[in-house]
Design a protein around this nucleic acid. Structure first.
Lengths: 289, 289
DNA sequence: GATCATACTTCAATTTTTCTGTAATTTGAT
DNA sequence: ATCAAATTACAGAAAAATTGAAGTATGATC
């Protein structure tokens, strides 16, 4: 029978490439770990490590390592969630939000909320819009912030704010120096990085440029690092491009009127409906610009 | 320390509302379960059941039940995946696919593949397009079928087929009886059901009708059941509407030229690249219409 | 509201599993 | 080839889970 502890043991040993290192990390003796590993390999009927020194994984070992890592993260999350739920008899709000909103009015709203309700516990998770919707449907979150306006069963949806798309480029990039706002054609004549957010723009020109892009960057920090080199440019919603370092410039784009709407999703089956209502009012009234 | 077994115990007892029933189901004695529950409640510092008879959960209990259920499903999945990986030293292909492709050439291709490679193991999962992409990126799948053409790091993408959108309605519905193909306006003058797939149509008219729709149906079987009443109609890609019962009709829509492209996604870091290539050739050459 | 059958809890003994510490063996690097 | 470090084996110890029997609460029925 495979147990969480076996996976944790394997995972740690795989990570450090040594029983000893892993054993101090886990607070067990090397022999205990060795036996756990032996048991796991026995159960699977295959080796997980190439050599007896545990510093090289077999292909199967790599596969199991990947699976185990993700299971462990997930399990630890579960435990935290359960413990949060238990330690919050006075109120708990589970928030799921897209990363860009986490950088806006959300922290202020949470802080105000916690002042007013000293016993309130808050659980906050970043994810993309589709996962926010899923999380609320599955009861993993009570309230969510996502882009687009979704109509889901048992979920209320209000628009929070709208967001214009624009160009992100380095301050030394040619597009930063043109006086009038650049057009899409101007932009696509330079090396263009695609990202998850610009695919929300329903324009064929953007879609084909995204597909033709040689680089797709999935996370904002990388995007900023890449842009800083002045070699690439990208298109983003404005709220994502806040608090930029000096070497970066965000500019409107000539001919783009489409905006991204960001909405508040409210579960109708939350455990603390009153708190949720207070909180949602705070969010709706907050300054999101 | 919370363990999987504790969650399984709690979950089963919560499900059956009785220690005895759960105990036979799990093959343990009632007292063992009782002690496990006591330990869990002790760890959380709160009650999970309203009374000592285990047939009523506290609000916290309900929350923990939901979390535990999903964790258990996830954990069992993990175990299966690991065991699959270990039991397939000769070859394993992990497929992630949108449900509509599962009903098309995929079964045939898998069957051909397994004839040619008697030791081959296959893992097949249904999910929506976004999750297919995620699964491949995370190494949970080697090959995927998804709508749209995504460009992802370390993933090859080829178009498999294209799919026209059309109207799905009951055979007795007025729209089934008009001679010429109905327009969008015709359709939206009747009660319209929204679904996840029609949101892939980039048309404002469809978007606003979806948002205004009083019903959103997330799964094809329900969609068919609803349509059969002749009270509602919906818009779908053609391949989803195959093998319809007689009482249903699928019709082209006047003025809709946009098609849904369905693509094959291939991980470049699969464990058995040769098998994957053979399989992907099969899929590309298959008859998808 | 008293009674009864059923279901849950507790307790101590037992079994199973897991962990430790030392000694012996293996391994990879020099 | 040799050595130092790391891993395994083994047996005893500790911890945890399980059991069965006895006690106690519950709610259904009259």
């Amino acid at each position: 029978m495979i147990k969480i502890d076996m996976l944790r043991c394997f995972s740690t040993v795989a990570q450090f490439g040594s029983l000893m290192e892993a054993s101090t990390r886990l607070g067990r003796t090397p022999s205990a770990l060795s036996m756990s590993l032996k048991q796991l390999e026995g159960h699977l009927g295959a080796r997980l490590f190439e050599t007896e020194r545990k510093n090289k994984l077999t292909p199967l070992g790599q596969e199991v390592f990947r699976i185990a890592q993700s299971q462990l993260r997930q399990f630890d999350d579960t435990v935290t969630s359960i413990e949060n739920a238990a330690n919050a008899p006075q109120g708990l709000i589970k928030i799921a939000s897209i990363p860009s909103a986490t950088g806006l009015a959300l922290p202020q709203a949470i802080s105000t909320m916690m002042e007013q309700h000293p016993h309130l516990k808050v659980e906050l998770r970043d994810m993309d819009s589709a996962m926010v919707a899923e999380a609320i449907l599955h009861g993993e979150a009570d309230i969510g912030i996502a882009s687009g306006s979704q109509s889901l069963n048992g979920v209320d949806c209000v628009t929070l704010f709208e967001d214009a798309f624009g160009l992100l480029c380095g301050a030394e990039h040619p597009l930063a120096k043109v006086t009038s706002p650049p057009t899409l054609d101007d932009i696509f004549s330079y090396a263009f990085m695609s990202n998850n957010l610009c695919s929300q723009l329903d324009l064929d020109a953007v879609r084909s440029a995204s597909e033709g892009a040689h680089i797709v960057v999935h996370n904002t920090h990388s995007l900023i690092a890449m842009t800083r080199t002045n070699n690439w440019v990208t298109i983003l919603p404005k709220s994502v491009a806040r608090a930029l370092p000096d070497e970066l410039v965000f500019r409107p784009i000539d001919g783009i009127t489409q905006r991204r709407t960001v909405s508040l999703l409210l579960s109708q089956r939350a455990r603390f409906p009153n708190l949720l209502e207070t909180f949602s009012n705070l969010l709706v009234q907050a300054d999101w610009t």
